[in-house]
C-alpha cells in the first residue's frame, strides 16, 4: 500500500483520454466480477455503456447499479475511464464534441440517453463537483445562489425589487443552509460579498459543493474533488462527504485508495482500457477481491 501512496498521480485529461490496451480480451475481464446485489431500487442504473472519443474506445460495456443514499467510490489507474463514466451520468460528456455514447443510463428508472431528455432537469437532479475548484468570478453569495436564480426560484434583481417580489430572505436562508451543509459557513459568514476567487483552494472546493447543494440535487457526482487540495482540506472534504451520504447519493471518483476505503460504502474498480473489473461492498473489494488483477492493483503491484 505504501508504494501507491508515494507515486505521483497524474490525472488524464478527460478530453483526450489515453488509449490503452489491456492485452486481454473483454471476455476474460468480464468473467472476473460477480454481480453486486443490494436491497431496494437502484438510484442509477447503467447498462452496457460504451463511450468512444473519436476512434478511442474509452469505456467498454459497463453495467452497474448504484444504490440510493450511499457513497460509491470509483477507483482505478489513470486513463481507465472512471472520469468518463462519471461524466456520462449527468451527460456532461455532451460538451465533448467527439464523444459518442452507446448503452443505457437510467436515473430513477428513466432513461437519460434518449431524445427529449431535459438536460436542465437532469443536471438539477444529478449535480457535479469537479476535480479542480471552479467557482465563478462572483461573490460567495452569488456563487451559492447561482443555480436557484437561474431556475427562477430566487430573484433579487432590480425589477423584482420594484415589483416587491424580491426574496432576499429566502436567498439568505438558502445561502446559509448550503454553506453550513458544506462546512464553510463559519469561515465565510462575515464576507459573503467578497469575490470567491479570493478563497483558498479547499474553501473554493467546499463552495463548489455548497453551490451544488443549493440546487437540491438527489445525486452528487464528484470527480476527484480533493486531488488538488492539501491534506487538511482533503480531510474536511472527506468528513463532508460522510455527512452528505445521509441524504444524497454520492458517486466519487478517486485516485486515492485509502480515501476510497475510508469514505465509501461500495467500490467499483476500473482497470486499463475502460473495463469495470470489480464492484462490491468496499470492505469486500479491499479485503477479499475476486480478481487477481484488482488485488494486484490494490496492493500496489501496478497502477
Amino acid at each position: 500500500m505504501s508504494e501507491t501512496k508515494s507515486t505521483i498521480q497524474t490525472e488524464s485529461n478527460p478530453d483526450r483520454p489515453v488509449s490503452t490496451t489491456t492485452g486481454e480480451t473483454e471476455e476474460e475481464v468480464r468473467s472476473e466480477w460477480r454481480e453486486y446485489a443490494f436491497d431496494g431500487e437502484p438510484k442509477l442504473s447503467v447498462e452496457n455503456l460504451d463511450v468512444y472519443y473519436g476512434d478511442d474506445h474509452a469505456l467498454r460495456d459497463v453495467s452497474i447499479d448504484i444504490p440510493e443514499e450511499s457513497v460509491t467510490a470509483l477507483i482505478g489507474p489513470s486513463g481507465c475511464g472512471k472520469s468518463t463514466f462519471l461524466r456520462c451520468l449527468n451527460r456532461m460528456n455532451d460538451r465533448i464534441k467527439s464523444a459518442r455514447v452507446d448503452g443505457s443510463v437510467e436515473v430513477d428508472g428513466e432513461e437519460i440517453y434518449q431524445d427529449g431528455t431535459n438536460l436542465v432537469e437532469l443536471r438539477k437532479r444529478v449535480g457535479m463537483v469537479f476535480q479542480n475548484p471552479n467557482p465563478f468570478p462572483k461573490s460567495i453569495r452569488d456563487n451559492v445562489s447561482y443555480g436557484p436564480r437561474k431556475h427562477g426560484d430566487i430573484d433579487t434583481g432590480v425589477l423584482a425589487g420594484l415589483l416587491g417580489r424580491s426574496n432576499e430572505e429566502r436567498e439568505a436562508e438558502l445561502v446559509e443552509r448550503s454553506l453550513k451543509q458544506a462546512a464553510l459557513w463559519d469561515e465565510v459568514d462575515d464576507r459573503l460579498d467578497d469575490n470567491a476567487m479570493g478563497l483558498s483552494g479547499g474553501q473554493q472546493q467546499r463552495l463548489c459543493i455548497a453551490r451544488c447543494l443549493a440546487v437540491d440535487p438527489e445525486v452528487i457526482l464528484m470527480d476527484e474533488p480533493a486531488s488538488a487540495l492539501d491534506p487538511i482540506a482533503t480531510a474536511k472534504i472527506e468528513d463532508l462527504i460522510d455527512e452528505l451520504a445521509q441524504e444524497y447519493t454520492v458517486v466519487i471518483v478517486t485516485h486515492n485508495m485509502q480515501q476510497a476505503a475510508r469514505i465509501s460504502d461500495q467500490t467499483a474498480v476500473f482497470l486499463t482500457g475502460g473495463n469495470l473489473v470489480e464492484y462490491g461492498e468496499t470492505d469486500q473489494v479491499f479485503e477479499n477481491p475476486e480478481s487477481q488483477r484488482v488485488e494486484d492493483y490494490i496492493t500496489g503491484k501496478f497502477g
Binding site: V107, D108, E110, E111, I112, Q114, G116, T117, N118, V120, E121, L122, R125, G152, D153
Partner: peptide, 12 residues
C-alpha cells in the same frame, strides 16, 4: 413563485 408543474426529466 408560480411554477405550475415540476418539469419532468423527459419531455413530451
Amino acid at each position: 413563485m408560480s411554477r405550475v408543474t415540476e418539469s419532468a426529466l423527459i419531455r413530451e
